[in-house]
Simulated assay, not measured.
Amino acid sequence: MSALPQAASIPAAPPEVREIWYTRCPVPTASGLAQHFRWVHAAFAREGIAVHSLRDSDDPAVRESHFTHSLPASFREGGNIPAIWARSGGQDTVVVGITWVDEEQLILVAPDSDIRTLADIRGRRLGIPKNTARVVDFPRAQDLHGLVTGVRLAGLQPEDVQIVDIAGHDFQQRRIGAAGPGSIHQATADALLAGTVDVIYAKGAAGAWLVQERGLRPLLDINAHPDPFVRVNTGTPRPVTVNRDLAEQRPDIVARYLATLLRAAHWARSHPDEVTAAVAAETGTTADNVRRGYGPGLHQHFDVLLSDQYVEGLRRQTAFLREWGFLQGDFDYDAWIAREPLALAHQIVAREGPALPSA
């Protein structure tokens, strides 16, 4: 009779997971599509796993995990600034996929401004929000990055302009839509129209709304630049992050989530009108603002990848945030990227097909 193996050599059973959480920003994401049509819920219902939305929770501590990623067994896809900030503070997450949905990134002036060309911003007042928040001030970071990009495209340096702080609010306790009166750009747009500042930044459907409804005049669309790395900001690219322990102990769950996103991206390519309607609902704006803010090819750009461009774009955003003092500490960027779950997700789709689960 062979001897029983030592207890230490017996592989531990994978931990049981009965529920997972997800969160996404009010912007175009594969996760947003998957939850809008409840495909992610259906995918895990087969496994007896409940799926919950952080954004729909009544508990402020749970909603704050959108920024801190403190909730176990949680997935996040959205603006990269909170994800990078949480990792820099020691939160042990991994990037298991990245999406890149280009969006209008506008340098805006008032309708009656005497600023006519980008070079005219020399010496002018550039407004950025300064919010009261316990977490990273992502609106400040994104607006600063956009304006610094505009300054450098004008052949200037940040010291050639005046940076003016505009008082904001405690944004993490609110469910702010990406566009319309509740937009995170409202304070800076008000300051621009009041003459307190001369130039601001806005992006996506919110920027389109400010042009359409408040008459702001675009001086530059950074998104028109051919170099994708010039277009890097909080929304380009957007990482899909998950707790490292879940990725290591239950790679099947992480791969199943990613497989649902891959299928959603495949579906989106042949359903442009449905995608526009879903994103309009996600962003709290109109279909016309979605088309302007994200372009007519939006439905073709939900692919979840870990391509060289996507990984390098996220690296460059991390470097910008470090340079401008938004991070809590340094971390090993390369070790943050976990490629195995996405490879497993592709195997699932290849084996089971691209059809989405019935909601």
Rank of each mutant, 00 (worst) to 15 (best):
D56P: 10
D58R: 13
D58L: 15
A61W: 11
R63D: 01
R63M: 01
E64L: 14
S65Q: 03
H66V: 07
F67G: 00
F67L: 05
L71I: 08
P72D: 05
A73V: 12
A73F: 13
G78L: 03
G79I: 03
G79M: 09
N80H: 12
N80L: 15
N80M: 14
I81V: 14
P82N: 07
A83T: 00
A83R: 03
I84P: 11
W85T: 02
W85G: 00
A86H: 04
A86C: 02
R87L: 13
S88P: 15
S88Y: 11
S88D: 06
S88C: 12
Q91T: 09
Q91H: 04
Q91W: 00
D92R: 12
D92N: 11
D92K: 09
D92Y: 08
V94E: 02
G97K: 05
V101T: 06
E103H: 07
E104K: 08
L106R: 04
P111H: 01
D112L: 01
D114N: 11
I115Q: 09
I115V: 11
I115D: 05
L118I: 00
L118K: 03
A119P: 02
A119Q: 04
D120C: 15
I121R: 08
G123K: 10
R125Q: 05
R125G: 06
L126R: 10
G127R: 13
G127T: 09
G127W: 15
I128C: 03
I128P: 06
P129L: 04
T132S: 07
V135S: 00
D137R: 02
F138Q: 02
F138T: 02
A141R: 02
Q142P: 02
Q142L: 15
V148P: 12
V148F: 12
G150C: 14
G150R: 10
G150V: 15
V151R: 05
R152W: 12
L153R: 02
A154C: 06
P158A: 14
P158K: 14
D160A: 12
D160W: 08
V161Y: 12
Q162T: 10
D165F: 13
I166L: 04
I166C: 03
H169I: 07
D170G: 05
D170T: 01
F171W: 10
Q172M: 01
R175K: 06
